[in-house]
Design a protein around this nucleic acid. Structure first.
Lengths: 242, 242
DNA sequence: TCAAAGCAAGTGTGATCACATATCAAAAAT
DNA sequence: ATTTTTGATATGTGATCACACTTGCTTTGA
């Protein structure tokens, strides 16, 4: 029986075929909504409807409602008593709460990663840094989508190295929750004259290269604290404008 | 318009009617599965089927499949490539991973709670401690379900006081993931002659009463580490027996 | 003129059906 | 006797429908 299976596998391997995968529609909807949320494509407090999203994504309601349910349990979306769902509004208490949790968990993750990243992984994140420099040199602005994606790749490439199957999903949940806030902060940055984001990332990489866990943690804290602090100020000054 | 609403409210309040609530079937299924998972009613590696659960819970498949999807995103259940779902198996790496995350996050939560719990909340958890003593004095054993519930109430009564809407759902997810493991540990305890669990809880309460965050954190770490260490030893000695 | 009732469109929830795939045991072939 | 094939059963996924509830606007009545 095992011999037969091995033979069949050889047929496949000989032909150099890659596994085709079986992603469901629900998975695609879920991924798409995640991407939109982390990228801040939805406004805080925006209400989402099942049929509206199903139309926009060109599917039926079924995959959408299940994806929404999953996002609600991750606190990426919020179920109102009306049974409608919206992206959670930004409050001062919430951004402080989110930042504290991110410092705690992402700090621990990068601290673990510091002693586990080989030259191979260091090189990968350095590559991402260079890519960042390139797109910044070329275009002057407005490629914030690309920047958000690159930032995400940079951080998660590091977190993945921490080797914890428990912490990583939690960090993903935290990013999902801070996504809508962060986008607001990014816009605030670009209209306030941007500070050099890459600088923070470079000091993170420097700390990782020398396996200095404490320095890496501190550099990371500085990196993620900045947009939150910015957003906090902005929120306090505008007071109530909705 | 507001006046009219107020009048209607007065009618209701006069009659002393409580809001009736609108819990959906899906919510009930979800809660029930959560309870079962945290209580360790499912075996690690056990496969769950939608139709099987729907029959057991006397509903249709629809609420069950959505509840399962939510539990999968919380890592309380695991989606196999077959598209079937099972409760995650126990491995040494996983219990170490879970324990580390729980120490990190629950430690932070209790540390925050230490400075926020008033005499009111302290009294509540002391009440839970007394309740524990009572059921231990009466029955000699085998009320492990009651004990599990009481343990859960004790911890979450404290965590709720930390005031973080971000950390608490994460802790719930961690309990969901460690539930199946813990039950194994509890059985191991009862056959190995039980150590006094209440002792650890009492030192937690003592630390909280004096608002000593560091002591509370240490006592908590000792409390939650114990079953994991026990389970770890058991797993290593039995080596492979499945 | 304004509040209350009524009506209509929109929305979430749960049930049921159709279909593709997985699983497993029995039968057939080597 | 072992392996392959085959067929029956079980299971997850997505579509569609019926129903209840919400919401906002229009109409009615004072």
């Amino acid at each position: 029986m095992q011999k037969a299976a091995a033979e069949r596998n050889n047929e496949v391997f000989a032909a150099q075929l890659a596994p085709v995968g079986r992603e469901t529609v629900q998975d695609r909807v879920y991924s798409e909504l995640r991407r939109a949320l982390i990228g801040g494509l939805f406004e805080p407090s925006q209400v989402l409807t099942i049929r509206g999203l199903a139309d926009a994504l060109v599917t039926s309601t079924m995959p959408v409602r299940e994806a929404l349910g999953r996002l609600i349990t991750e606190k990426a979306l919020e179920a109102l008593p009306n049974r409608s769902v919206r992206v959670p509004p930004i409050t001062l208490a919430r951004i402080d709460d989110l930042l504290r949790a991110r410092i705690l968990i992402e700090g621990e993750a990068i601290s673990l990663a510091a002693s586990r990243m080989g030259p191979r992984q260091i090189a990968t994140v350095e590559g991402l840094l260079r890519e960042w420099d390139e797109i910044r040199a070329l275009k002057h602005k407005k490629d914030v989508d690309r920047e958000v994606t690159l930032n995400q790749s940079f951080h998660f490439e590091i977190y993945r190295a921490c080797g914890s199957a428990v912490l990583i999903p939690m960090i993903e949940s935290l990013w999902l929750q801070s996504g809508p806030c962060i986008r607001v902060a990014i816009y605030a940055f670009s209209e306030a004259g941007e500070v050099d984001t890459a600088h923070y990332h470079r000091s993170i990489v420097a700390a990782l290269a020398t396996q200095d866990a404490q320095a890496a943690r501190e550099a990371l804290v500085a990196d993620i604290s900045r947009p939150f602090a910015f957003l906090r100020d902005k929120l306090q000054s505008t007071a109530r404008t909705e």
